[in-house]
Amino acid sequence: MKFTAEIDVMPKKELLDPQGKAVMLGLEHLGLNTVQDVRVGKHITLQLEAENEAEAKGKVEDACKKLLANLIMESYRFELHQN
């Protein structure tokens, strides 16, 4: 079975996100003064093959924990769709 994983990796809430801060400044310059907070993360899509959904989920978890996110500074979540 073929799956697509849609993964979001975000800087942890308690950590300062300088990139988000810089983008917020840009938005202010654009005139969007009502924006209160910006945090910038990554969106990653993976195409993978697995026997079933549980196996696919396990593989994506593994990819996230070992490489795609650094759990010291980032959190992740994902959605899995069967193609």
Partner: peptide, 17 residues
């Protein structure tokens, strides 16, 4: 080395962007 787990912690983007 931090990514490899040989040293503790992580190096984040500089505070002053």
């Amino acid at each position: 080395l931090t990514e490899a787990g040989l040293l503790p912690g992580a190096l984040l983007r500089n505070q002053e962007q």
